[in-house]
């Protein structure tokens, strides 16, 4: 099937306080956070631009990428003004912390830019910014796809409107 599927991990929470570890939350946090870069955690805990724009609005482009079976679905939306500049961007993501962080970064980076310029945003830039580990690189690829899909949707709407006029 899809490669992304094999990148998911079995997760387990053990509800036990081992006598040696003690109940100190800080120590446990440290252990748990090992492996996640602080940039990822920061965006996961305080994601920017979560929400939805009216997908029926002519000025809004919507990109929906990924698949539930793979464990990642990203919806990224842009609201574009008459000059082609992105005024606003929102996202919703079903996926791991790295996927949420990648979408969050993508919405921040597209805001204020021209639709043609955002196509230059590469997954490698997002991955580098978040210090994504190799097994999470597909999250940044998905974010790049989401930007493209949103721009294409907006362009298609504009074309359709022009044809109708």
């Amino acid at each position: 099937m899809l490669a992304a599927t094999s990148l998911r991990r079995a997760t387990r929470v053990v509800l036990s306080r081992s006598p040696a570890a003690g109940a100190n939350g800080a120590a446990q946090q440290h252990v748990h956070r090992r492996g996640y870069h602080e940039n990822i955690i920061e965006h996961y805990e305080n994601p920017r631009n979560v929400g939805s724009l009216d997908k029926n609005d002519d000025d809004v482009g919507t990109g929906l990428v990924g698949a539930p079976a793979c464990g990642d679905v990203m919806k990224l939306q842009i609201k574009v003004d008459e000059n082609g500049n992105i005024q606003e961007s929102k996202f919703k993501t079903f996926g791991c912390g790295s996927a949420i962080a990648s979408s969050s970064v993508a919405t921040e980076w597209v805001k204020g830019k021209h639709v043609d310029d955002v196509l230059a945003i590469k997954n490698t830039d997002i991955a580098a910014h978040l210090k994504l580990p190799p097994v999470k690189l597909h999250c940044s690829m998905l974010a790049e796809d989401a930007i493209r899909a949103a721009v294409n949707d907006w362009k298609a709407k504009k074309e359709a409107k022009k044809a109708a006029a």
């Binding site: 998911r8 991990r9 997760t11 387990r12 929470v13 053990v14 509800l15 036990s16 306080r17 081992s18 570890a21 939350g25 446990q28 946090q29 252990v31 748990h32 956070r33 996640y36 955690i41 996961y44 996926g95 791991c96 912390g97 996927a99 949420i100």
Partner: peptide
């Protein structure tokens, strides 16, 4: 996994 990240204050083993 995103939920697990949120459960950071529970001993995760």
């Amino acid at each position: 996994e995103s939920l697990l990240m949120a459960l950071k204050n529970v001993a995760v083993s």
